[in-house]
Amino acid sequence: MRYDEFRYLGIFLTALMALNHIYALPALSEEKRVSPNSHHFDLIEKPLCTECHMSDDSADLKPISSFNHSSDFISSHRFYAMQRSQICTVCHRASFCSDCHTNKSGLKPSDRYQGSPERWLPHRGNYLFQHRIDGSIDPTSCFRCHGRRNNKLCVKCHK
């Protein structure tokens, strides 16, 4: 049966929940762990975590300095997110990610945040011309965001 996997998944998740309620795992909570919205204040600019956190602090068993949003954090954020995206929710609501990672996009991110040129945003300005060149240089990078999703607009020309 095709949906068998789902049944097992459901059973497994239920068992997980039950187990977790039995063993609240007090030992684990000693390590400084992340819970959603634990930064009770808004940061408006890319943070250098180490400006506030002691250097020997660790978040999620990684040194806090790893998460510093330095100028090329945009090219490494994927590696942190794929290992534990919960740490991002300390500060980011999910719609922050869906501005760029979306199935169906209304406005280009650079049209939504025009007042923030200091942010890295995909293809600013009118991109229809330059995309032909960028697309041939590194199509893999485009594929992440347009290969299976967010490509209704493209179909007009790429039938």
Binding site: L13, L16, M17, N20, A24, L25, L28, S29, R33, V34, S35, R78, A81, M82, Q83, S85, Q86, A94, C97, S98, H101, T102, N103, R144, R149
Partner: peptide, 22 residues
Amino acid sequence: SDSNLVFNAGRHYVFEGVASEQ
């Protein structure tokens, strides 16, 4: 009691290794 368990349901993102899915 245990922030090491997180559970999501509904329409959401999953970022886990190869997965970057809605």
